[in-house]
Simulated scan of single mutants.
Amino acid sequence: MNEEKLAVLELFLAADIGAVRFFKLLEVFGNAKNTVTASAQELMSVYGIGEKTALAVSSRKFAAMAENEIKNADKNNIKIVFYDDADYPENLKNIPDKPVVLYIKGDYIPQDFNAAAIVGSRRASAYGKNVTEEFAACFAQNNLTVISGLARGVDSYAHKAALENNGRTIAVLGNGLLVNYPPENKKLQDKIPESGAVISEFALNVQPNPGTFPRRNRIVAALSKAVLVTEAVLASGALITAKLAAQYGKDVFAVPGSIYSNLSKGTNMLLENGAFIALNPWHVTSQITGTPIYNSVSQKDAPKLTSGERKVLEFLENIQEGAHTETIAQKLNITIAQTAAILFQLEMKDLVKAAPGQIYIKVR
């Protein structure tokens, strides 16, 4: 590791200052090496850098710690990836608070760019467990990497279902990679790198605390093409992840639940506020991947179509914005009643989807 990388790690360990202040320091001093050799007074001249941080950085006490961190990572087959490395995840590069350093055990590969997060309650009900496993299995079977946070409940069910279906999964931790949290997930944490990766922005031995989980959630959201919330209370980390995903321009899906269940109040609120409704795994998978996916019964044999259904699909093929029921009827010279019946059947087969105003769009 060159001197500049070592200085980045030293600065990272000396003061967990976040990406914004880190890059501000680099802007002022030119690089990390110049930053760690600056005086406390010089460091404090930078907006946002207080005396405590300045003294920690200028003390150079963390230089030896940085070298030990590298040795410890190598010993445990953990890669340390820096923000400017070629193998830094592409999905993280453009968020304003991208991690300066990532610790990765396992492999983050180009296929993982095509990923969806599944998040939810730590105390999932049987319903939450079942739907989480169904969605994760479908994602895995259709080459969507499943991303979650290795927490109890929904996160664990999602990771396990992905592995059981020979898929890839990525766990993003709110602690260092040499810490097992929750402790009962140690075997799962050890298993995931065989078919994915365990990732953290925290130094190897950092313990979890209430402040580390929201930071973890932003990485989950940023790494994913879409976020699915299967079950969540109103005040939950899953809703933080969903909010961050929306801010990053990602699609948010939610599984509806009983209006009497606290565990569904979070997902029902997301739906009320405009999240996509997640009624079946293959439809959600189709929407995320842009490729029609059929359920396990029909996967080998796509739905049989009547001649009328084929004509409607052919008509909609080149109309990206969809067409109104009356327009379809007029162009195909059939009645509106016949058109409505055909569109209903195609919608049930997940081949078209309805948009507001009786507009129908072919699922692609």
Rank of each mutant, 00 (worst) to 15 (best):
E317D: 15
N68S: 10
T241C: 09
T35I: 02
L316R: 14
Y47P: 12
V101Y: 02
Y127D: 11
I240W: 00
K61R: 15
I104L: 00
A222H: 05
Y127V: 02
Y47E: 09
A278V: 02
S39M: 03
D251I: 05
Y47H: 15
Y103S: 01
E194Q: 15
K225Y: 02
I342S: 03
N185Q: 14
A137I: 10
P96N: 08
Q338R: 15
A242S: 03
Y157I: 04
G257F: 11
N94I: 03
E194P: 11
Y108A: 00
P256F: 11
E3A: 14
A162M: 12
R21K: 12
N31K: 07
I240S: 08
I95C: 10
P214D: 01
I293Y: 05
E326Y: 13
P256Q: 09
E321G: 06
Y88A: 10
P208Y: 07
R215W: 03
E231L: 03
S224T: 02
F22W: 01
D251R: 07
K225I: 03
N180L: 10
L188C: 08
N142S: 13
A203M: 15
L305R: 03
E3L: 12
L279G: 09
V352Q: 03
N130S: 06
Q111M: 12
F202V: 05
N273V: 12
S298W: 04
F23A: 03
N142M: 13
N166A: 10
K71L: 15
A63M: 14
I277A: 02
M348A: 06
F12T: 04
D350M: 04
A203H: 14
